[in-house]
Design a protein around this nucleic acid. Structure first.
Length: 482
RNA sequence: CGGGAUGUGGCUCAGCUUGGUAGAGCGCUUCGCUUGGGACGAAGAGGUCGUAGGUUCGAAUCCUGUCAUCCCGACCA
């Protein structure tokens, strides 16, 4: 069977796994549902961290670290929270060769332990706002796992903030959602809808959950990040109180927000083709790979020097590069390797190019190759090309989403839309939870969010459930999701 | 936890029906020859066939238990 035929019969799941493995982003671990993030995959994560960490700090947050082990009793303090997370918690029962009197939970998220500390640290409105973030791993024992999209242990960033007023907490919730939007759209080139989750889809313990929802190339939606207004729920459970400027004791208003290594899953399923991964230049660990055409057992000094010089020149211009000067691997192998890894540009220099002062430039996203690119001014040229590639990858993703979004007026139309173009169905809804049950039971779909971007006229467009139009109805995006 | 499938060198798998003591391709090592898109040739290294027991003169193969993984459902960033 040809490779192409194999690709076509692959399910979305195996596309994800194939690319993750072949691009050497990750590998399976001996532990069920866990994965090893390999250097190239981790480099993408580091790039995400680098960008987001700056945004987090620029918006007035500080990084800290809280322990991985949480006393089991902490989880139980917030009713909705324990109900939501208990089934997927891994619990430590023994340590130091003895059974523990109180079991420890491997954090599925850190609201509880952080609140425990907040309640010690916060006394007065003068201590507020307190805005912390931690980069950490969390463990959620999932029944079914997929590389990057859902693993039992994953890396993420979790922000936790305390405020003196509800309004301020709400503002914080939306500010961080906006940071996520920027990260996804400007850097990962993944268009997202921001919006609010329905009651049934919100975070266990939150007052309201806001989400960034992306669309993958297999037509499924992906919750790529969330930001929660926690209200005073955890504050009450942990007695996180402060004295306000009227000398009255009050519970703090809190938020929490996070994005995870799932973002790498979003990159994989958002940008790929039959060959493998396609990385947007802004997020690529290296934007250009320089490959000299080398001859084994011959003097390659001249060509290697030329490659190094170009490599340095590109780096001096602020381009992230990798020079692959391995003599033991044929260039054909290298070409293939970097295409699977999605490196945006491949720059090839061989003896002929050296003589003629030219280079070969290959664009990964559209698999185009141009020979005889002038050696002079290469850095400037590639900078422009990288910007153009970023823009075009983004535009293709936007177009894809537009083509896979259907405006619907009835439940029947939702079903058709989910099957035919796939992707999002945009509708009006009167808020009756019966719809969520129908979607889930019949179509395996969910209301992804009530989007901030509105396209429908509530007074004209009927509710998919009742068929009636009302200005009380809300606009929703429905999709099958990861 | 239900339903289905699979465990054999690093990887993908054949061999099992009909028991006779382990193979192929890829990868790896060395040498030679090559080199502008995954080269070729030769020589080599590497497996107590998931695991425990049973049947048998003899088990990768048959039987039973067990563990693990994958797929389909119920849960989820």
């Amino acid at each position: 069977m040809s490779t192409k035929a194999k690709e076509e019969q692959n399910t979305a799941e195996s596309i994800l796994a194939d690319i993750a493995i072949k691009a050497q982003l990750a590998d399976y671990s001996p532990i069920k549902g866990c994965m090893v993030i390999r250097p190239y995959g981790y480099a993408i994560w580091e790039r995400i961290k680098e960008i987001l960490n700056k945004m987090i700090k620029d918006t007035g947050h500080e990084n800290a670290y809280f322990p991985m082990l949480i006393p089991e009793s902490f989880l139980q303090k917030e009713a909705e929270h324990v109900e939501g997370f208990a089934p997927e918690c891994a619990v430590v029962t023994h340590a130091g060769g003895k059974e523990l009197t109180e079991k420890y939970v491997l954090r599925p998220t850190s609201e509880t332990i952080i609140n425990h500390m907040f309640s010690k640290w916060i006394e007065s409105y003068r201590d507020l706002p307190m805005k912390l973030n931690q980069w950490a791993n969390v463990v959620r024992w999932e029944m079914r796992t997929r590389l990057f999209m859902r693993t039992s242990e994953f890396l993420w960033q979790e922000g936790h903030t305390c405020h003196a007023t509800w309004d301020e907490a709400q503002q914080e919730t939306l500010t961080m959602l906006d940071c996520y939007k920027t990260l996804l759209e400007k850097y990962l080139a993944v268009p997202i809808h921001t919006g609010k989750k329905t009651q049934s889809e919100k975070f266990a313990g939150a007052e309201a959950t806001y989400t960034i929802e992306a669309l993958m190339r297999d037509g499924k939606a992906l919750q790529a990040g969330t930001s929660h207004n926690l209200g005073q729920n955890f504050a009450k459970a942990f007695e996180t109180q402060f004295t306000n400027d009227q000398n009255q004791l009050e519970y703090v208003y809190q938020t929490s927000w996070g994005v995870s290594t799932r973002l790498i899953g979003a990159l994989i399923m958002g940008h790929h083709d039959d060959v493998g991964l396609i990385l947007p230049p802004e997020i690529a660990p290296y934007q250009v790979v320089v490959i000299p055409i080398l001859k084994k057992n011959k003097d390659n000094t001249e060509i290697l020097e030329a490659a190094k010089t170009i490599n340095n020149e590109l780096q001096a211009a602020g381009i992230r590069t990798k020079l692959d000067d391995r003599v033991t691997i044929s260039q054909g192998h290298k070409f293939n390797e970097y295409e699977q890894k999605g490196v945006p540009i491949r720059l090839v220099i061989g003896p002929r190019d050296l003589e003629e002062g030219k280079l070969e430039v290959h664009r990964r996203d559209i698999q185009s190759k141009e020979k005889d690119i002038p050696r002079d001014g290469i850095a400037t040229r590639l900078q422009k090309l990288l910007a153009q590639i970023q823009k075009e990858i983004w535009q293709r993703a936007v177009d894809y989403r537009t083509e896979h979004t259907t405006i619907v007026k009835s439940i029947e139309e939702i079903e058709t839309a989910l099957d035919k173009p796939g992707g999002f169905a945009r509708a009006m809804w009167n808020g009756d939870v019966a719809l969520e049950k129908i979607l889930k039971d019949k179509f395996k779909a969910t209301i992804r969010c009530m989007p901030d971007d509105k396209e429908l006229d509530a007074s004209q467009h009927p509710c998919v459930l009742s068929g009636e139009s009302s200005t009380n109805n809300v606009e929703i995006l429905v999709a099958r999701a990861y």
